[in-house]
Design a protein around this nucleic acid. Structure first.
Lengths: 211, 211
DNA sequence: CTGTCGCGAGTGAATGTTCATTCATCAGAT
DNA sequence: ATCTGATGAATGAACATTCACTCGCGACAG
């Protein structure tokens, strides 16, 4: 997940993307309020003064992080929409995502932090909400294809389903980073999460047959 | 949720409980790192100096908050375990909890904050993990009754199920406080969450018949 | 080829503010 | 007289934000 992300965004605004990668870690480790501008500047490998040239506020950094991740997600959904069997592609993509979050890329703390900050700071709340509603939009488009119904009908029927998928994925990512004693049961929980996602998708697919 | 909480804990250490109620709000509004000792002391209605007599650190406050909420949860599970139909009682209790979190008691931000803090500060992580594992324990005991199997067997079969329930409840509480545009779809999402919980419980109950 | 001008990128010390933590002190009850 | 619960000013560290300044480099006139 790290290398494609870097490759993707580096193309557009190289320096900013590079800084973003450094910043993520710091936010994850110290939290939104816990990370000082000095901390962040140091992590980005530059002086405090210069740092303000790139990001005038913490909210701006979160916005940049969110925007970049959203672009990644969009890319994935585009390939899902183009697949021969969208249901299978979506299912596979989600399962893969659950696996990835568990081992390797530790974005859990970062999203926990951003989620918490979104509930306190309106600027961040707006950004996060825009992101989530956009993702729900992608899901709904996929659902429309799967259920063989127009997009707006899918929206009416499956709004909650799309929200549930987003919720499950986020919750799983955050949970995956908590504690170590239970790591044996981590695999089991992941399997159960995947089954829950399957159940949601099954409800969507079931709308097709009864037309 | 507020009044029973106060009534419960006031019996034991009145002053501390009173302070805790004031503190909650501040943590929810400003975040763990965002809330200064001055903020918290003011919220508790006392001087900074005196405040340190009650809580020497923010982690201690979180611990107190968590401990108190855990006592509430324990109480609920005790009554569930004593019910004639534990499955129905558990199901009803969980559904009720989902409803409550949505309207009225806005504990979402607080738990988002605590969850995020738990991933960064080891002391808080330990406390939260202890709480969650205790709750999972209560769930597993209930599961054992429902499935009609010894407790340790339930633990082997349903560890993931208990973790999933905890995850769903927490995620729903946090999600319930995000944004306002979607509040129309909030009810639908809540219904879906309840159905997911039902699905998990159904898997537990299914273990009974096949003995 | 060379001097120098402009400019974007980068620096880090300075400023005023807020924070955590301590402590000398106080009011009132025993 | 003393003990308990409470006060809030004091202290030093850390923070956000600004700013005067440097450096390297390409353009370009001589």
């Amino acid at each position: 997940m790290t290398s494609p992300r870097m490759a993707l965004a580096t193309a557009a605004r190289p320096r900013e993307a590079e800084i973003l990668d450094s910043i993520r870690q710091t936010f994850a480790e110290k939290g939104f309020d816990g990370a000082s501008m000095q901390d962040l500047a140091r992590a980005a490998g530059m002086s405090v003064g210069n740092f303000y040239r790139y990001f005038p506020s913490k909210a701006a950094m979160v916005e940049a992080i969110v925007t970049r991740d959203l672009a990644e997600v969009e890319e994935k959904f585009t390939s899902i929409a183009a697949a021969a069997d969208p249901l299978a592609a979506l299912r596979c993509g989600l399962h893969q995502h659950i696996e990835e979050e568990c081992s390797g890329c530790d974005d859990g703390p970062l999203w926990a932090e951003i989620t918490a900050a979104a509930l306190r700071k309106p600027e961040i709340g707006a950004v996060v909400q825009k992101m989530e509603s956009e993702i729900r939009g992608y899901l709904l488009s996929a659902f429309a294809m799967i259920a063989g119904m127009p997009r707006d009908e899918a929206e009416r029927h499956f709004a909650a389903h799309s929200a549930m998928v987003v919720m499950l994925v986020k919750a799983a990512a955050i949970q995956a980073q908590a504690g170590d004693q239970v790591s044996a049961g981590r695999t089991e929980l992941n399997e159960l999460v995947k089954r829950m996602i399957d159940a949601v998708l099954a409800e969507v697919a079931a709308a097709k047959s009864k037309d």
